[in-house]
Amino acid sequence: MTLSDCFDRIEDPPRTITVYAPPPRPTLVERLERETGIDAVAYRRLPEVAGPNQGFLVVHEGDEFVAAIGLEAARQFLEPPIREPWDDHDDPAYRRVIETFDTTIWHALDRRQLLAISREIEALAWRTSSGTLRASFQRASALEAAAPVYVRLAGETALDVHIYIDDDWNRPSIPGVTIHDDVGGEIGSFWALAFDGGGDRLRASGLLAREVDAGTFRGCWTNDVQLVSRLERSLATAGE
């Protein structure tokens, strides 16, 4: 199965977002409409006398309530801080926003958002310290930038780390990391990451996004164990 096949088989759940805030309509509404790929983004007014910091959004899946999220947490999610996988800083709100949009296909993710989500998956792998982590890089230069993270992930855990890159890798090898270089095919147009959970199905986690414009990706992250498993197979096949 190719990464494209894997991508095409993702079925995103029918989610809706309702943003509650006092007028004027927050610009976040347009951003969510444009970037999430969720068709039903609605705005409902709170009284004008309420303060501008009083907004929140509500996510439904069909008729089911999924979560209500403060607009500050939602904005932080769209412009996330980048942390190291071993960073102890706990940000439950950010993690919960990621969970809320599990398997939702976003139409416009930028590199910063993808990096922040990748770091969440790498942090989960770091804490689990076992299992297999697979990551793709579009270019050798991108892997070079991330190399310190992978040196530590492979060096200080029992993780089996596989990296797939479109280019040749003619830099020194990274101890504990199997680099599959010159993979070609589709790897250059995807940002993919898969962690098998290290034997714990609840920790399986993946990210798959396709570059649709320079620096703009369409994709999703997921904790769906079957989807993660398909993603792992696609990456493993690409590296053969």
């Binding site: 907004g55 929140f56 999220i69 500050e72």
Partner: peptide, 10 residues
Amino acid sequence: GWQYATGDGI
């Protein structure tokens, strides 16, 4: 939402 989620709550 208003009672618990304003700001960075969930």
